[in-house]
Nucleic acid binder design. Structure first.
Lengths: 131, 131
DNA sequence: CTTGACTTTTGCCATTTGGCGAATTATACT
DNA sequence: AGTATAATTCGCCAAATGGCAAAAGTCAAG
């Protein structure tokens, strides 16, 4: 962890705590994290673990993944909140389909997409033939 | 961290590593995490920190926040790829399978599980017949 | 059975994290 | 000024993380 990112994150947390406003002890009570630790985090002497960030986020009014991103635990564009689109090809997996498949064993799951790809290649060759 | 959640997460990671498939050393090389540490995580002797999870996610084909949720670092509220974790009794949906399927249209996705259920009922009737 | 090449596990250690309690430093109130 | 009172910081410690190197396992070819 670079010194700058520690200080940066600490600065942000402190700024947010002041803005609410809360004292270290109050935030400590709300988040179940010791005030001394919070203080060290704010002035960049310690780097907060994921579980600490999680505890602190809500009392400070941060989105849960926001602090993770700031801390570098999650990559910058996290389309996690609500209905963002998939980074890959844009399709969404239907929840019902997902649920049904999830109940199958891993082998069956893989067999399923194996069969799918076979069917697709057959379909492709058929249409090619046709024309 | 409860013993069960450690073992659970380890089990999932190991299962996924085997499915890819990779050795501990290969995964170690790809993720820049020592093989010994990865081994201990898989068998529940260590709990992976957020940065470890982040490094490991991509080589294993997990969405970046998926492992965070499984580890309890993030709350399980965002069904981006549908429920990859399993509050309901069943198994989990393999990330690779989910990704491939998500690229298909909704019609195709439903057709896939339609075919699956047909194959299952055929298999069932065959085994019944046999005895 | 034995050798040789991998893969996984174990022992040991440095580094970090995070808590508790005691100092220190603001902030009020007489 | 002087002294409560609250807020922050410091010192020290236990527990956990994660790496390295050596010790087991595994498994195929000879």
């Amino acid at each position: 962890m670079s010194d700058t990112s520690r200080n940066e994150l600490g600065r942000i947390i402190k700024q947010q705590r002041m803005a609410v406003p809360l004292t270290l002890q109050e935030l400590a009570a709300m988040s179940e994290v010791s005030a001394s630790h919070l203080g060290r985090i704010e002035r960049g002497e310690r780097f907060p673990s994921a579980s600490i960030l999680r505890k602190v986020a809500q009392p400070l009014g941060f989105e849960e993944d926001e602090l993770f991103t700031l801390a570098g635990y999650l990559s910058p564009q996290s389309p996690r909140v609500a209905e963002a689109h998939h980074p890959y090809s844009g399709g969404r997996l239907d929840p019902y389909v997902a649920r049904v498949l999830a109940e199958e064993s891993l082998d069956v799951q893989r067999a399923v997409i194996g069969i799918l790809s076979i069917l697709k290649s057959i379909a492709k060759s058929i249409t090619k033939e046709k024309r």
